[in-house]
């Protein structure tokens, strides 16, 4: 993943496997929650769900932080927890009900995206929200968040070929939507 790492608070000074210090954990949350919220918001296109998932991500980070081995940047690790948590939630929801986005939802999402990220490109956000969820996730993971094909295949539990075909499809749909 090539995402830019935000500054990391000095949280990991505690002995290995020790639980996070609450004050330091709040500092970690403050340093990273905006990145986590952006991930969950774009993947779900739903502000309320994104807020719930942001909390869930940090509960998992809290639980797993003592086992974090520092093999990647903390920001990268948290980002991956965010993606995996959101994917799990989406899979769980898709098992319960087939969620179909209504035609006004991309517009509603685009408005929320503009509120949350004033500098964003609203036409892109609207086109992203209109993508089928599978294609949207692959596009976000690769073209927005900088994951590689093999990383995405591993996270989604699909083949490299599926990742490539989903990504190509997503880009085609994006270009069509942007030309309209």
């Amino acid at each position: 993943m090539t995402a830019t790492a935000p500054p990391e608070p000095a949280l990991l000074d505690a002995p290995a496997a020790a639980p996070p210090d609450p004050a330091a954990f709040e500092a970690l949350y403050r340093a990273h929650y905006r990145h986590v919220y952006a991930v969950t918001l774009r993947m779900t296109c739903d502000a309320s769900r994104a807020e719930d998932l942001t909390q869930e991500v940090f509960v998992r980070v809290w639980q797993k932080l003592p086992t974090f081995r520092g093999e990647s940047a903390l920001s990268t690790w948290i980002h991956t927890v965010a993606v995996r948590t959101t994917l799990e939630s989406m899979r769980s929801e898709s098992r319960r009900e087939a969620r179909v986005m209504t035609t006004d939802e991309p517009g509603r999402y685009a408005a929320e995206a503009r509120r949350a990220m004033p500098e964003t490109a609203v036409d892109l956000e609207r086109a992203i929200a209109a993508l089928p969820p599978g294609a949207r996730n692959v596009l976000l993971l690769h073209d927005v968040n900088g994951y590689r094909y093999h990383e995405i295949a591993e996270m989604l539990g699909v083949s490299l070929g599926t990742v490539k075909s989903q990504l190509n499809r997503a880009r085609r749909l994006m270009m069509e939507a942007l030309e309209r």
């Binding site: 995402a3 830019t4 935000p6 929650y33 905006r34 990145h35 919220y37 952006a38 991930v39 918001l41 502000a47 994104a50 807020e51 942001t54 995206a113 509120r115 949350a116 990220m117 500098e119 964003t120 490109a121 892109l124 956000e125 927005v144 968040n145």
Partner: peptide, 8 residues
């Protein structure tokens, strides 16, 4: 695209 956003 920005990679950070503010919840409400």
């Amino acid at each position: 695209l920005p990679r950070a956003g503010d919840p409400a």
